[in-house]
Design a protein around this nucleic acid. Sequence first.
DNA 1: ATAACTTCTTATCAAATGATAATTGGATTC
DNA 2: GAATCCAATTATCATTTGATAAGAAGTTAT
Lengths: 193, 193
Amino acid sequence: MDNRLKLALHDALNAFGLQSSEAKNLFYESGVLRIYPRNAVLFYENAPNELEYLLVEGVLHRYNTDQDGKDITTGFYAGNAIVTPHFSRTVGGRSIFALQALTDIAVAEIPVKVLDQLRYTHPEYRTFGQRVIEAEFSRNLINDIAFRSGTAAYRLELFRKIFPGLENIVPHYHIATYIGVTNVSFSRLRRKK
Amino acid sequence: MDNRLKLALHDALNAFGLQSSEAKNLFYESGVLRIYPRNAVLFYENAPNELEYLLVEGVLHRYNTDQDGKDITTGFYAGNAIVTPHFSRTVGGRSIFALQALTDIAVAEIPVKVLDQLRYTHPEYRTFGQRVIEAEFSRNLINDIAFRSGTAAYRLELFRKIFPGLENIVPHYHIATYIGVTNVSFSRLRRKK
DNA sequence: ATAACTTCTTATCAAATGATAATTGGATTC
DNA sequence: GAATCCAATTATCATTTGATAAGAAGTTAT
């Protein structure tokens, strides 16, 4: 495996609070670093899935297919990012959304059972888990409020703050569904500023 | 405490999978059944909070105050309902939203630490916890998609399915913010059907 | 290099939603 | 019962957003 990516994983673990070499080695024991090409689907909606994902490089999005067969993006993951944890994206062992690479990506995968065990036995992992959860939910709430009381322009502004530069990397129609407008309206919003 | 409510709590515990009398007694040991009048606030945004709540009777809503000082409702709890669990509404020990009674309510309160302990030692509590979490997140996802790809009319329809009759019980302006429209638009949507 | 395809933009028109203000209706208070 | 207050409706107009279609620009395939 690419040495540069090993280093990137090392840095990512640090960034998320797994700083002791003991904690890192525990991760390396069961985690694998994988490469996926652009457009690869890591798992589908309703498919069984038993992994946790740490995105080391590239961009992912989560999406669902609505009644009309259209894909709706409900989240992006960019740079160093923890994908929404297993317990909060799984019902009856099956994923409630699909996860797809929007660029070539490098992602560390670790079985959720292993990570649960680590969280139980190792304080750094406990803190790590707590941090991931809190980030996840406070981010969700901000979006909830933005959709209920903000305009599409405001949501785009928010998106740009949270994911600077992403607009130049991923297809716009994904961003459009993410902020809850058509791709035509999205283009209009871009022109206005 | 009112006998009728004790019975209602008993039924609520059953409904959520705490069926053995052993499981129920464990709950009664540390849980208390409390009455709040309409408009009472159980906890505020940013306030420390260490309880889990099981709504036995009445209606609650969770809300946040946006930049303009307007209150935005991001969820309702009616009838027998588990309030969004502590770990997913708390950052740094402080609540990320406020919880308010919209009718007189009866609610069972139990320290989150106790419930965590029960979940660890008792299989019924483990299943209970799992069920609560899965219900919470799949409901959230449905709303995410409704806001991104549906109209306000569709979200009202969804609200009516999930909370039948609630429209006749709680102030409309709360429902309006919940489905993401002004109260004037809400009134319009009502007239149309 | 050309053709085919996809994404993004632009134009036009219709529909949905917001802002504001006036009005109605039902509670509550005095 | 009159006055007051609050929630909900209605009317009017402006703005935002959607639907559709056509065109532009870039990419991919042959």
